[in-house]
Design a protein around this nucleic acid. Structure first.
Lengths: 128, 128
DNA sequence: CTTTTTAGCAACCGTATGGTTGCATGTCGG
DNA sequence: CCGACATGCAACCATACGGTTGCTAAAAAG
């Protein structure tokens, strides 16, 4: 806390003017983090093709053990990206597209903000 | 390697029919991983509002030290989300929206795939 | 030239993460 | 009831990650 709060002359509360989506980012970051692993991304890719798959089925696509896949699915489930329903002696996992939609919207907002900023910069540069 | 490849009776090459975007996911996962931290997400949110900021300026928005922010910026730069240009004695960081666009497209593909799968399921359920 | 500002580098620390193995549990088919 | 199958749980391990501190280097200010 010593190196902070004395530097950066006048840059306080720079997030005040940001869109609401980009302010409280707790759960959102967990969604991105859940997608931020090749194995999990592949799991999502498989699941988004539809249907519900058991752990054993999903394990067949990866190079790691069944327990490893279970852990990854748990991470995805904690982020709300995926949901597992128990059916008999097996648990079937399926995509839960809500959080992914939210993440997509966030990236859209970022891109849009960026373009708006570019437009303003251009307008300023072209002003007489 | 023992628990694998014997289970899951007939589920080999399930990614064969997936869109190309969802197959080789190395760099893509690193982009999601870079966004998967609240501090970094906030940095991106600040940077997407336009302009180039120094480390000291960016540090003023966070609760962590300057070195911590530097590390986070390095992670973002390694993923290609952000770029830093050295100007005099300071380094100014700005957004590099290419990778974020790519990530957004990936999420769009996932969502589209999911809807297609839902449509097929519905069509099957309604077939006489 | 000396001081200040801004940043980079390196070592260190605690905890989370990805992965494994071994065993226990529930459930389906006879 | 019994065996086989699919999963759950817990312990364990190595490494990556988030964060810090201390020191050094380079540019700007005086």
């Amino acid at each position: 806390m010593s190196a902070r709060s004395r530097t950066a002359k006048g840059a306080g509360r720079r997030d005040a003017g940001l869109p609401a989506i980009l302010r409280s980012n707790e759960a959102l970051a967990s969604v991105f983090a859940a997608l931020g692993d090749p194995t999990r991304l592949k799991l999502v890719a498989v699941l988004c093709a539809g249907g519900a798959f058991s752990i054993a089925q999903l394990t067949a696509n990866t190079e790691i053990s069944r327990q490893g896949v279970t852990k990854h699915l748990q991470v995805l489930a904690d982020a709300g990206v995926v949901r597992g329903v128990k059916l008999g002696r097996e648990r079937l996992w399926q995509l839960e597209p809500g959080q992914i939609e939210e993440a997509k919207r966030t990236l859209e907002v970022i891109g849009r903000q960026w373009e708006v900023a570019l437009g303003k910069l251009k307008a300023f540069a072209e002003s007489p």
